[in-house]
């Protein structure tokens, strides 16, 4: 039962727990007849695996799904919520998903490990990761973290802070950060990792005022780590070029719709969260959607870049290679599947 308890622990707050794949899958299947009825037989089935459980971080995809935008583009999409034990890259690799939401840094590492990933679209243009400390700790710059107790997530999420610590020659007393910020809230660490759109707001929602916190946006320290992007395998691009193109169009249209209709999109997200039995509150999802808009570089409701910047890509590739995080990285054209176009 402790396993069960652990699941629950995770689900307490922000990060939903180790998810059950089957449950939401069947749920979506059950609620999709609406679209199935509308859908012409030509609808092509496709699966998207997200980085985490339903939340406004993926509002664009859920909005597109619920508003029939995928169906309009000829796709019968199923969204598979990711989680701690579901690696989107692994899902892609094993063919359990056709498309995945991945961070650029993760994608580069997968590519380095031999998975032929293609970046279809870059949704978030910059890193939203921050190191948060209480004002009383006096951490106003990254250098002040030297020798302090800092909690970091495992895996890809720790790439950027570790990269920066190395870059600035800082040694921190690292503590592994779990799925909550409770350790930080109770004073167990001097600084904690936080996503601007998520944990930071959780702290505010736990009664800490913004002016009680010092915030270091890692994005401000030299290297941009673009986060959520849409990926697929090279062979999918090759075999299903129409589906891939339709998927990109529909996803970006979904995002534009979400930014133009924030209240409705939050409703959609909360509905999905309730279905997945995930604690949800509007204020938090609204905050998350607003930050998504900021991070996506969206200007005005109808604007949504959604494209990976070559500079960002090459800078990150170079820095990661220099840091020994990857051995090599493909050309921008190869990585974005446009090498033949480029040449």
């Amino acid at each position: 039962m402790k396993t069960v308890k652990r699941k629950s622990c995770m689900k307490t707050r922000l990060f939903s727990g180790i998810s059950r794949i089957v449950m939401p899958f069947t749920l979506f299947f059950l609620v999709s007849p609406l679209f199935l009825l509308d859908a012409s037989p030509a609808l092509k089935k496709a699966r998207l695996v997200t980085l985490w459980q339903p939340q406004a971080q993926f509002a664009g995809y859920y909005a597109a799904l619920d508003r029939g935008i995928y169906a309009k583009h000829g796709i019968d999409l199923t969204i598979i919520p990711g989680g701690a034990v579901i690696s989107p890259a692994e899902m892609l690799r094993s063919g359990k998903a056709d498309f995945a939401v991945l961070w650029l840094a993760s994608a580069l590492r997968e590519r380095d490990a031999g998975v032929q990933l293609i970046n279809l679209s870059q949704v978030l243009q910059r890193s939203s990761m921050m190191l948060v400390s209480r004002k009383t700790a006096g951490i106003t710059g990254i250098e002040a973290l030297n020798g302090r107790k800092v909690s970091l997530w495992d895996g890809t999420l720790s790439l950027l802070p570790r990269f920066l610590f190395r870059k600035y020659g800082i040694t921190v007393n690292e503590v592994r950060q779990s799925y909550t910020v409770n350790l930080f809230l109770r004073g167990g660490v001097d600084a904690a990792s936080a996503m601007w759109y998520n944990e930071y707001h959780v702290m505010l929602e736990s009664g800490i005022d913004a002016d009680e916190l010092n915030v270091l946006f890692l994005n401000d320290y030299g290297v941009n780590f673009p986060e959520d992007g849409l990926y697929t395998l090279e062979k999918t691009v090759r075999n299903e070029p129409q589906l891939t193109a339709a998927f990109i169009d529909a996803s970006l249209e979904g995002w534009r719709y979400a930014f133009a209709h924030p209240e409705e999109s939050v409703d959609i997200i909360i509905r999905h969260m309730h279905k997945a039995h995930i604690p949800a509150n509007r204020a938090h999802q609204k905050w998350m959607l607003d930050r998504m808009r900021d991070l996506s570089g969206s200007k005005g409701s109808e604007h949504m870049p959604g494209v990976l910047s070559r500079t960002d890509y090459e800078t990150l590739g170079r820095e990661m290679k220099a840091a020994g995080l990857i051995r090599s990285y493909p050309s921008f054209g190869t990585f974005t599947g446009k090498s033949h176009e480029g040449q």
Binding site: K5, C9, K11, T12, V175, T180, R186, G188, P279
Partner: peptide, 21 residues
């Protein structure tokens, strides 16, 4: 949390409440 927080703080701690299915 149930392990890490009391460990790091070195004192008795109550966890935040959670749902257990």
């Amino acid at each position: 949390d149930w392990y890490q927080i009391p460990f790091e703080l070195g004192r008795k701690e109550w966890s935040e409440p959670y749902f257990d299915e």
